[in-house]
């Protein structure tokens, strides 16, 4: 498959599923196999909460991942101790998680492992940056999550693959529209470099950006209430930065402004958008603009036409329908494996 080269070039990849059982794990497995065949050293972790997410709370097992000899992986110690293959511990990570100590280890032989790694964006970002510096690693892989449950953003990796499956919906249209939505949010333009530098360390509250690029703090904590947003917009000359969740309420309020065409919304990355597609598009249609501070490259969409209940969508048709909506290659995960 062509995107293996791209993954190697970018050095880090997250595989993100549209929902549970969408083929994310198969997709990750496929990528790991390919990289192993190309004799690339891989480090892999997971940001835990995704569709099957309750695992952080109830500690129910997530799907296991096959690790090849020589692969590095980061997971919590309690999962590590259940392994049935030889691996050497290389490091205990300084931050303890709710599930206990987190460790980085290297597989000394092939084996299965449950992964649960850094649970917030900053830790994940550190992981992606540090691993290649400390170990001879070619590619960092993140078993991603796209859900409001995950505090960690997959946008910290240089590239991304989106897994879409019949498990999310058996309606091809719905699947195609949702994929298109994610595609569009990932491709929101990057903010100007000078603004990115000024804003990247601000992770809470709301900020205004003046015409001259000055950052002002209107002293409002949350962008969830329309009144607060209107208040801020009055003070902030049409440009605001919202590092937290981008909700329906926020986008609706902005779309209802008289000056919507001059309104610019700056967000951290696509994963912070929790608004519904129709609200998102409505804001853009009316002339509002959105920019992100961190942008990842979507390399491909992988579809899984089989739902866990056994329904099977027509593979070629599904690939076709989705391909029409997005400007990146679309593959059938089942065919890729075979």
């Amino acid at each position: 498959m062509p995107f293996t080269d791209q993954i190697i070039r970018y050095g880090s990849l997250s595989v993100v599923g549209l929902g549970k059982n969408t083929g994310k794990t198969e997709c990750l497995r496929y990528v790991m196999d390919r990289l192993y065949q190309r004799q690339k050293v891989v480090a892999v972790t997971s940001i835990g909460i995704d569709g099957e997410g309750v695992d952080r709370v109830t500690a129910t097992p997530k799907p296991e991942i096959f690790l090849e000899k020589g692969m590095f992986f980061t997971t919590v110690a309690s999962y590590y101790s259940k392994k049935r293959f030889r691996a050497e511990i290389c490091e205990v990570l300084p931050n303890e998680t709710v599930l206990g100590k987190m460790i980085t280890a290297r597989a000394l032989e092939r084996g299965k492992m449950i992964l649960a790694g850094p649970a917030d964006t900053l830790l994940l970002q550190n992981w992606v940056h540090q691993m290649p510096q400390e170990y001879p690693i070619d590619v960092c892989l993140v078993d991603g999550a796209i859900s409001r449950l995950s505090p960690a953003s997959p946008a910290v990796t240089e590239s991304m693959i989106l897994a879409v499956g019949a498990a999310y919906s058996l309606n091809m249209r719905t699947l195609a529209e949702k994929t298109r939505f994610v595609f569009d949010t990932v491709h929101l333009p990057l903010a100007d470099i000078s603004l990115r530098k000024k804003l990247e360390n601000i992770t809470r509250g709301i900020r205004g950006i003046s015409a001259g690029g000055e950052i002002t703090d209107p002293g409002v904590e949350s962008a969830l209430l329309p009144a607060g947003v209107r208040d801020v917009m009055d003070k902030c000359e049409n440009r605001i930065y919202v590092p937290g969740a981008v909700s329906n309420a926020l986008l609706k309020t902005l779309a209802e402004r008289k000056e919507v065409e001059r309104t610019e919304l700056y967000i951290r990355d696509f994963s912070r958008i929790f608004a519904e597609p129709r609200v998102f598009y409505s804001f853009l249609r009316k002339g509002g603009r959105m920019f992100q501070l961190f942008k990842t490259r979507l390399l491909a969409v992988c579809v899984n036409p089989v739902s866990p209940e056994g329904y099977r969508l027509n593979s070629e048709e599904l690939v076709d329908v989705i391909q029409k909506e997005v400007g990146v290659p679309v593959y059938d995960i089942k065919k890729m494996e075979g």
Binding site: A77, Y80, S81, I89, V92, K101, I103
Partner: peptide, 11 residues
Amino acid sequence: LDEVELFEIKH
């Protein structure tokens, strides 16, 4: 001690 704890002592 478990493996992680033994590693910690070594480290």
